[in-house]
Nucleic acid binder design. Structure first.
Length: 110
DNA sequence: GACATGACATAAC
DNA sequence: CGTTATGCCATGT
């Protein structure tokens, strides 16, 4: 089915996000060759085999986790990110420091 | 098929 | 900081 091609492209990009870095839904969509389809990324992650994907490294453009506050998933995602060294400030991640830029795989330490 | 929903993004006010 | 509007489209009812 042609439909899954999009999902596969998305999963591929997500798998490429290095530990300790995050990517936004829109960014993942673009890198997957699906511009303007950020929502599809959310859907793809929802349907994805969580065990085989670093789904927690995908957050929204505001640097926030897009799961309901206080939900198990939200806490899990925050826990995993913090475990990788991603810092939350007032519930937000500074994308300038932890955002994934293709070509640089380590966080900028100032 | 019509309609509502949602792990989103961007722009405008 | 916030709200509204619009684009997007797979899924579920």
């Amino acid at each position: 089915m042609a439909l899954n091609a999009s999902f596969l492209a998305i999963w591929k990009v997500v798998k490429a996000i290095p530990p300790g870095r995050v990517a936004t839904y829109g960014q993942v969509a673009r890198l997957a060759g699906l511009p303007r389809r950020a929502r599809l990324v959310g859907t793809a992650l929802n349907e994805a085999p969580a065990a085989s994907l670093p789904w927690h490294r995908v957050i929204n453009a505001q640097g926030r986790i897009s799961l309901p506050p206080n939900s198990p998933g939200q806490r899990e995602q925050r826990r995993r990110l913090r475990e990788e060294g991603v810092v939350f400030v007032r519930g937000r991640v500074d994308l300038d420091r932890f955002g994934w830029r293709a070509g640089s795989d380590s966080p900028l330490l100032d």
